[in-house]
Design a protein around this nucleic acid. Sequence first.
DNA 1: TTGACTTTAGACCGGTCCGTCTACACAACT
DNA 2: AGTTGTGTAGACGGACCGGTCTAAAGTCAA
Lengths: 189, 189
Amino acid sequence: MEMPPSTNLREKILDVATDLFYREGIHAVGVDRIVKESGVAKMTLYNHFDSKDTLIAEALKRHGEQWRADFVASVEKKAKAPWDKILAVFDTLEAWFDGKEFRGCAFINAAVELADTRHAGRKISADHMKHIRDYLASLTQEAGFKRSGELAGQLQLLVQGAIVAAVIEGSSDSARRARKVAATILENA
Amino acid sequence: MEMPPSTNLREKILDVATDLFYREGIHAVGVDRIVKESGVAKMTLYNHFDSKDTLIAEALKRHGEQWRADFVASVEKKAKAPWDKILAVFDTLEAWFDGKEFRGCAFINAAVELADTRHAGRKISADHMKHIRDYLASLTQEAGFKRSGELAGQLQLLVQGAIVAAVIEGSSDSARRARKVAATILENA
DNA sequence: TTGACTTTAGACCGGTCCGTCTACACAACT
DNA sequence: AGTTGTGTAGACGGACCGGTCTAAAGTCAA
């Protein structure tokens, strides 16, 4: 009656790839390394993925889905009132930045690392940002702002700016700065 | 009486390295490529630089000095009044984003690509951001704002956020959004 | 039991990585 | 004329790159 040891190889490979790409960078991690750390044969990897590039794209895609689910859950947990939820976005960022494993936004990083704009990962990064903007728009709309879309676009600048600043400064202070700016623009919207 | 053909090899190597690193990424460009495109012998490169890592650091350093000089010159050219200069920062960004060769901020990119926080390039990136923040602080102080430092920190979030958004969206619209937010926070400071 | 499919381990391919080394050319200065 | 310093061209090393191939072992259902 034992469960098969949860051994979906494909998922295992994606887990390892996602983790390594995030921690060390896409270019810095080779296929052999992913093979070794996932304890799988090289042919198994190439049986499930056409190439490293498609593995990159699929890992990014799944990473995005998980990240956004976690992000939304954290925001919704921190606040109930619509207006507060918007500010809770920045509290969530702050907690993320303070995490030991924080290495920036995987999708910003991917867009930077994948210099070729035609790489599939670039579209996934762009889609991720669009999803986040849509989420912000849903919050601003829920809070009753007119021009919620415009406001969401402004808030997203703050989110991305805070992430980049956190990486470069090695501190979560940028989240608090961004929160303050967000409060200002909400009060004047 | 001819001038030596301006052949400072060291500068030539830095020029080529800076350009290639920016356009294609630090990891994606090999030493052999830099050697070939600068038309110099490999030993000459290693005679002037200890390693690729030190070349990266020196190229970044020089790139930063040039970039900031150009940036400040552009801002000062676009506006004379202190308050206007602050907004001209975002007009300068917009023009930069629209340039064909725009590939983001070399220092954000470097911080992302150089996963090891101990890499010399990481400090140069951090210093670059500090220089920009200092410049913004000089503008806000000149414009007579109290707490000019705090304001500068907020403006910088917008600058960095706009740059990242421009890369991912492939558009200069983020500069206009950031400008609008900047105007809002200036009016309420 | 047979047959179809997956996975394994690792050899192997051509190419590139960073960095070193050699052997030689061309200066400039003494 | 000889020395010193800087440059050239390219071979070379060992490691790694992404990707293919093979031969054997494991798995599962008919």
